[in-house]
């Protein structure tokens, strides 16, 4: 039975696209058949982060409007044949997405893949609501920072009100992915701790992604961080999070990048 997962946050720039790519690739590496869908119409970036930007011919809007078949728009990843991407349109706006069209495409994707991972646009408007509409589960990407936590709280409210599952009286299972976390700063009480964020949002923790220079490096070269540097701390954290999504129980750890000599001499701060 296919699972539809939305990666959402409310606030922009917290790591939705990075997390969509990394979780999608990690699930695909474990043998699951995965498609990542970019819902950020007009500001598509998932293709760029995944290194598929030059292979885009048709997009989600073309499929929703019936101008292209799904098979024509879905791009198979060059590194992993279990990973595919359905890009968003760069030229159209989100009003080109219709409720019925999106429902039809989601049904078709469910039939083709084990996992359909929807990368939500920022905000709480129509685009974000359409991205979460058909979700069975949600990953809420949050940074340990006040505005991100506040927006995550709003998004959690929307997941309980505006999804198909919510309207049927069921619940979308919600999972917190705490990104850009710096354990050293949290230990000095300069940053909200994991416990602080969990207390405030009261949803279960899927994983903690440490702040790391490897995330920017991966997007520079156009590869999910789990593929760009599998041994790096964020890659290990995303892999653990992906395994938890499939129901595995793993102890919660915050992986750390190994500091070089320079890093060790100067306190080993990542990024």
């Amino acid at each position: 039975m296919a699972k539809v997962l939305v990666v959402t946050s409310g606030k922009g720039g917290v790591g939705k696209t990075t997390s969509t790519a990394a979780l999608g690739a990690a699930l695909a590496q474990s043998g699951e058949n995965v498609v990542v869908v970019d819902f950020d119409v007009g500001l598509r970036n998932l293709d760029l982060v995944m290194g598929a930007e030059r292979r885009v011919v048709y997009d989600l809007i073309n499929v929703v409007q019936g101008d292209a078949k799904l098979a024509q728009a879905v791009i198979r990843d060059k590194r992993l044949d279990t990973l595919s991407i359905l890009p968003a349109s760069q030229t159209r706006d989100k009003d080109a997405l219709t409720e019925e069209g999106v429902a039809r495409v989601m049904d078709e994707l469910r039939a083709m893949f084990d996992w359909v991972i929807c990368d939500s646009p920022a905000g709480i408007e129509r685009g974000a609501v359409l991205a979460m509409r058909h979700a069975d589960m949600a990953v809420i990407v949050t940074n340990p920072e006040v505005s991100s936590v506040r927006d995550s709280d709003r998004i959690i409210g929307l997941l309980d009100a505006k999804t198909v599952k919510a309207e049927k009286g069921e619940t979308v299972s919600k999972h917190l992915l705490l990104a850009r976390y710096d354990p050293a700063r949290a230990a000095r009480a300069d940053m909200l701790t994991i416990e602080d964020v969990l207390d405030i949002l009261s949803i279960p923790l899927l994983g903690v992604i440490p702040e790391s220079r490897e995330v920017l490096r991966a997007s520079n070269i156009g590869a999910p961080v789990t593929l760009a540097n599998p041994a790096s701390a964020p890659a290990r954290a995303y892999r653990d999070a992906a395994r938890r999504l499939t129901g595995e129980l793993l102890p919660m750890t915050v992986p750390a990048d190994r500091a070089g000599l320079f890093g060790r001499l100067f306190g080993g701060r990542a990024a």
């Binding site: 009480a189 300069d190 940053m191 909200l192």
Partner: peptide, 8 residues
């Protein structure tokens, strides 16, 4: 004192 408790 750290600023995190204030944020919380």
């Amino acid at each position: 004192r750290g600023s995190a408790p204030v944020a919380r």
